[in-house]
Amino acid sequence: MSIMFILIGTSLLLAIGFLTAFIWSVKSGQMDDDYTPSVRILFDDFDKKDNKEIIEPIEIKK
C-alpha cells in the first residue's frame, strides 16, 4: 500500500504544475483579450507571402 504515498505525491505535484501553468498564463496576459486572437489566427492565409515573425505581446511597463 505504500505505493499510495508516492501516487498521491505525484498527483499533487502534477496538479501544482497545472496551477503554475495557469498562473503563468494569466500573468503573461493570455486572458486579457479573448477576442482578437480568434480573429488573428485567420490572418495566416493573408500573411503567407510575408515572412515577418509573429508579433510579440507588449507588456505595459512603468
Partner: peptide, 13 residues
C-alpha cells in the same frame, strides 16, 4: 510592433 486589443479598441504600439 503593433497589437490590437479589439474588445477594448486599443492599439498597443
Amino acid at each position: 510592433n503593433a497589437k490590437v486589443q479589439f474588445m477594448k479598441k486599443e492599439l498597443h504600439l
